[in-house]
């Protein structure tokens, strides 16, 4: 199941674990990333809380946690090479895997059609 947030994150949900990243639209808006900071594995986050930070040449931006849950894995590859987020934001440029406190919460997120309408 693929879901989106209005804050430009995508979630690929498999069982009770969501793989989370930023959308192609967000990556284009941010421009070339030069730094990514990811959360600690084992840390717990609430929906809407800061989970990661991305920085372009010009500015820093927060990546929010899309749902309540615990970080079970992070993608070290984007820390080593932040340009991966620009080249493949919805694939190899994923950020972290989140074990959802309540997977039913995901139902309320946007589907792909609704997200596409949002970003025009």
């Amino acid at each position: 199941m693929l879901k989106f947030t209005a804050e430009h994150e995508w979630l690929k949900i498999d069982g009770d674990v969501a793989t989370v990243g930023i959308t192609t639209h967000a990556a284009e808006q941010l421009g070339d990333l030069v730094f990514v900071e990811l959360p600690e594995v084992g840390s717990t986050h609430s929906k809407g809380g800061d989970a990661a930070t991305v920085e372009s040449v010009k500015a820093a931006s927060d990546v929010y946690c899309p749902l309540d849950g615990e970080i079970v894995e992070v993608n070290q590859a984007i820390v080593d090479d932040p340009s991966l987020v620009n080249s493949d934001p919805q694939g190899a440029g994923w950020f972290f895997k989140l074990k959802l406190n309540n997977k039913a919460d995901a139902e309320a997120l946007l589907d792909e059609a609704a997200y596409k309408e949002l970003v025009g």
Binding site: G31, D32, V34, V57, K58
Partner: peptide, 12 residues
Amino acid sequence: PVQFPAGVLKEH
């Protein structure tokens, strides 16, 4: 113009 399609990194 803050950036063109090439992006800040390539422009720099």
